[in-house]
Design a protein around this nucleic acid. Structure first.
Length: 287
DNA sequence: TTCTTTGTTCCGGA
DNA sequence: GTCCGGAACAAAGA
């Protein structure tokens, strides 16, 4: 379930291993990802050198001389690197001890540095889209996004202005990618717990201190998770097949019926559904 | 067999 | 026109 920290981890491991590599071949096993991969995809990418890899929200961007490749991992997408052995790479010479089903390997990018970048996605909700431009502001997916959480402008002033006349609850506001981009269900639940705010609170009702604290905690929790290699709940693994450990630090997500981890609090963690998504909160310290 | 899970888009109602 | 949230999407595990 890749959210911002997980994508950041993937970006960093990719950068180390394949930045400046050239794509020399592409094999597509399944075109039917969230958007169908066009027939021209391989032809337009073969021969291109990866000049830079960046991240915006939960999107990965591969930069080429005159093109951009936008990638989204959806819910279960994984990018894996494998070492190729000469000319038999598609038969037997991939080696991996990961618990990953090979028939969910949808795309193989063969690189000139002896590595193969594999896109694996059980649910096929992820996508790749190639653009004939190097300008990020031409990409509609990115244009719609709100501020990055680490942006300095993401503060109380921005929050106040955005929630004016809004009736949304705070959980849904934080999930709204046009408000702040990169958070998903896990980090929203955890950030609200840290901030002692109940997920059902109407966003307008937060006072200035609560807003300030919540914004601070969002930045803090994302940074901490990145430092732990992200969370490995269900499907997430980084590009080298390593799992993150942030899930060891969850206080509410998946903790239904457990005692609140705040020493002075005698509350219990409740699970409710908000907009078809599970929400977890302490019934005592989150107000 | 049914429910749950994930992020995003689409669509209908207020 | 704007805002909001439910449904849909794929697939697997409980």
């Amino acid at each position: 379930m890749p959210e911002l920290p997980e994508i950041e981890i993937v970006k960093r491991s990719l950068f180390k291993m394949i930045n400046k590599a050239k794509i020399i071949d592409i094999k597509i096993n399944n075109k039917n990802l969230r958007y169908k991969i066009p027939n021209t995809f391989s032809k337009n990418l073969i021969g291109e050198k990866i000049l830079r890899i960046s991240r915006r929200s939960k999107y990965l961007i591969f930069h080429f001389k005159k093109k951009l490749l936008l990638a989204h991992l959806g819910m279960s997408g994984k990018l894996l690197l494998m070492r190729s052995c000469d000319n038999t790479i598609f038969k037997t010479s991939f080696y991996y001890d990961l618990n990953i089903l090979r028939n969910h390997n949808h795309i193989y990018f063969i690189l000139n540095n002896g590595l193969v970048l594999i896109y694996n996605d059980v649910r096929r909700f992820g996508f790749f889209k190639l653009y004939n431009t190097t300008q990020l502001n031409k990409i509609i997916f990115l244009k719609k996004l709100g501020l990055e959480p680490f942006n300095r402008t993401f503060g109380v002033k921005y929050f106040k202005k955005f929630v004016q006349n809004r009736k949304k609850n705070i959980k849904n506001l934080l999930m709204d990618q046009t408000f702040v981009s990169g958070l998903g269900n896990i980090y929203v639940n955890e950030a609200l717990y840290m901030s002692k705010i109940k997920p059902l609170r109407i966003c307008k009702s937060l006072n200035k201190n609560e807003m300030k604290n919540l914004i601070f905690n969002i930045k803090k929790i994302l940074k901490f998770s990145i430092s732990k290699g992200g969370s490995s709940v269900r499907d997430f693994q980084n590009t080298l097949g390593k799992s993150g450990t942030f899930q060891q630090f969850f206080h509410v997500y998946g903790q239904k019926n457990k005692n609140c981890s705040r020493i002075s609090c005698k509350g219990k963690i409740k699970k409710i559904t908000i907009s078809n998504r599970s929400s977890f909160y302490c019934n005592r310290c989150q107000i």
